[in-house]
Design a protein around this nucleic acid. Structure first.
Lengths: 211, 211
DNA sequence: CGATTACCTTGACCCAGATCAACCTTGCGA
DNA sequence: TCGCAAGGTTGATCTGGGTCAAGGTAATCG
């Protein structure tokens, strides 16, 4: 019934428009959903971390490009049998609905970020989002200084945030200079004061920011 | 079981954080979901037209402000009984899942618009989105010139698109000057050539753009 | 009918972030 | 161990859209 698939970092999982033959959830690693315009402008529209569901029951073709950003393991179901199972097992549809509603809320937070936040706020928000997802996954309590591994390059962060990679780099440097974050290499970030970071992110208190 | 509620144009339906006591779908009129930052920056995150579902089964408090933008009629269910019905009637959860997945796709198109499109493309996209939704509703075939009533003020369009109202006004004037649209009053738009408009919108061909 | 109010347009100027360009750092494979 | 490629930083300059400001238009109400 279910089976596992592995992908290498950088490998495309499916292209927009391709027929989808499976659905599944991320077990390990990071995948992204992106849209591309004909002239090459790109926007990330989904960041899939372990436990996220990928695919769209009831649709024949993929709407977005899906790419593994790290080595990735997915737990997959062939789409047809999965749809049949959904029809006969109400619990599955209900669970999937719950997950989809959470994802929709997250997308709406993301829309606020894209439409109204400054570059600095966008970077702070992204780090906060990854930190929160990370914490939820590892159940590691947020005591003292939190530390996070960024699963994305500067360019991928730019695609997430609707910025250019140069602006991402500059704003990360600025947050570091101001002591909001501490860098250890390019990918590893420590957060001495989470409230300070959330303030920089422009989130009132905390908000939803579920994914 | 179900009952109808009416709201006047401009009336708030629910504020973010308030307890939700009902869910329902729009029968007539237009409602919006918006998010507001403490300093007043606002981003629309949902535009609800007739047939759209409003509310979140399985969540106690509203995540966003919901406002009637025109006189509005909704078909409502008290939330608790609706949730019970969902648990016992699989078909409902499945239908709601389908609608939520469509909304998520639409949100992802919207993210591309917010993150990567120019002001002119944003305006053209918005007009195209409303025209498509309109056409789907009225089943009026898109022959020759299409015409659309904008249910939003310039300011509300700005909140939709992540722009200021001045930029919205300027870009509408520019599209008019270039013959892409024809204005009849402030709210009524004729589209002489839909393909031209879609080109201006930066949509490759047509895309999803479901809501 | 004139006045108020809500909405819209247009102009002048400014600035956050894009663009263009040079260079640095790190890791890997021959 | 050298060379190259991928990723990252930083500087200089430009520009699309924001901001500030001044009217214009049209519906509504004494």
């Amino acid at each position: 019934m279910k089976y596992y698939r592995s992908f290498q970092a950088g490998q495309s999982i499916i292209w927009a428009g391709d027929p989808m033959e499976f659905v599944g959830s991320v077990v390990n690693g990071v995948a992204t959903l992106t849209q591309t315009m004909e002239d090459g402008r790109r926007q990330m529209v989904g960041l899939m971390l372990p436990s996220d569901f990928v695919g769209r029951p009831g649709r024949a073709a993929a709407a977005f490009d899906v790419t593994a950003k790290t080595d990735l393991v997915m737990c997959c179901f062939r789409k047809k049998p999965f749809e049949a199972m959904m029809a006969t097992t109400p619990h599955i549809a209900q669970r999937l609905l719950e997950m989809t509603l959470d994802e929709l809320d997250a997308a709406r937070e993301w829309m606020l970020l894209l439409g109204r936040k400054t570059a600095r706020e966008k970077i702070a928000s992204l780090i906060a989002i990854i930190a929160r997802r990370d914490a939820a996954l590892h159940l590691r309590a947020a005591k003292g200084g939190i530390s996070v591994d960024l699963p994305l390059t500067r360019e991928e962060m730019a695609d997430y945030l609707g910025l250019t990679l140069e602006t991402v780099s500059r704003q990360i440097s600025a947050l570091k200079k101001d002591g909001v974050i501490i860098l250890d290499g390019n990918r590893h970030v420590s957060i001495p004061d989470l409230n300070r970071l959330l303030e920089e992110a422009g989130d009132d208190g905390d908000g939803g920011m579920l994914a």
